[in-house]
């Protein structure tokens, strides 16, 4: 019989970071496009394409670098496709995003059947996987080695990328341009910022990171490819982005919550909870967290309006 302390122990930190990483990478993709005021639904599909490409290319070239590069290339191309369809040909962004998702589902299934003759899951013998960072100095202590050692290198990189993205968005002129395009297009245009180029760049980068997230999913998080293996993670990333209202650092908080619930769920399963309820946990959490975030945002807004109103009254009285 397992104890509750087995569920909530120090090993949870590692598990949480592991299951956060794919959502976090996708969250970066969501945040970048959101800053240009584009909701890129296609992240889910691009991730799936990235996962497939990375896994297969990695297997055939025997090199994880090639796999990751291929995923990123495919992601970037798809991002450009989405950008082209949306910006040049004025297709509705949700339609494009959703079409990409459907395309990814059908096409990966098609390629699994045609190339490997399997349906469902593709488990290749001896697949390549992303290297992990093993710190030998910590081997003596199980607690420390669980906390700091044996991470896939993508997991710390994802966190660093979020911080870097925050710096770029809020501390550089490139980020300022991008944000101003998203906040107020006419003003940005007046200031001489190329709107089309900024938006296209945002969507392309968003595709790039979604591809990277896919590569991590099939080569780091697990070492196989399963049909629809993203399983709504792209949508969760969009929810995390919403939770942080576009700010990468707050969005990371959202992604961490989902990752945490995901890893807790995996442990509760061994407690005898029905697996379906365990699988529900991250989705329910997402909706609840989104609601709480919106309620608190509203409260803040109301307080601000009230404050403005009172300040206004004061000035009227004094004058």
């Amino acid at each position: 019989m397992m104890q509750l302390s087995d569920v909530l122990s120090y090993t949870l930190v590692h598990a949480t970071l592991r299951s956060t990483a794919p959502i976090l990478l996708a969250t970066i993709a969501a945040v970048i496009s959101k800053q240009a005021n584009i909701i890129n639904m296609g992240i889910e599909g691009i991730m799936l394409f990235g996962a497939y490409t990375g896994y297969v290319v990695g297997y055939f070239t025997r090199s994880w670098v090639a796999g990751v590069l291929a995923s990123v290339a495919v992601g970037t191309l798809l991002g450009m496709l989405v950008g082209c369809a949306h910006l040049k040909f004025k297709a509705h962004i949700l339609v494009v995003g959703f079409a990409v998702n459907m395309l990814a589902l059908a096409m990966t299934r098609f390629m699994l059947q045609q190339i490997f003759g399997v349906s469902g899951a593709l488990v290749l013998p001896d697949p390549v996987s992303l290297p992990t960072i093993h710190i030998a100095a910590l081997e003596s202590s199980p607690v420390l080695s669980s906390l700091f050692s044996d991470y896939c290198f993508m997991e710390p990189i994802a966190i660093l990328l979020v911080i870097a993205l925050w710096l770029v968005l809020y501390k550089t002129s490139v980020g300022l341009h991008l944000r101003s395009v998203g906040l107020n297009e006419p003003s940005a245009m007046t200031a001489g910022i190329d709107i089309g180029r900024n938006k296209f760049m945002a969507i392309t980068l968003s595709g790039l990171f979604a591809g990277l997230a896919g590569a991590y999913l099939s080569m780091g998080y697990s070492t196989m490819f399963v049909e629809n293996m993203t399983n709504g993670r792209g949508y969760m990333a969009l929810a995390a982005m919403n939770f942080g209202s576009g700010n990468p650092l707050f969005a990371m908080g959202g992604a961490l919550i989902f990752g945490f619930m995901d890893s807790i769920g995996a442990r509760l399963q061994s407690f005898g909870f029905p697996s379906q309820f365990v699988l529900m946990i991250p989705y329910v959490t997402t909706v609840v967290v989104l609601t709480i975030a919106m309620v608190s945002a509203r409260r803040k807004e109301k307080a601000m309006i009230l404050k403005q109103y009172r300040d206004g009254e004061k000035t009227v009285q004094t004058s």
Binding site: I39, M280, V287, L290, M294
Partner: peptide, 20 residues
């Protein structure tokens, strides 16, 4: 009433319904 983004909320509730 709370201005929660329906894209995410409704979509993720699908998974809850399917698992249930």
């Amino acid at each position: 009433y709370l201005n929660v983004n329906e894209l995410c909320a409704a979509l993720l509730m699908n998974y809850v319904a399917i698992h249930f």
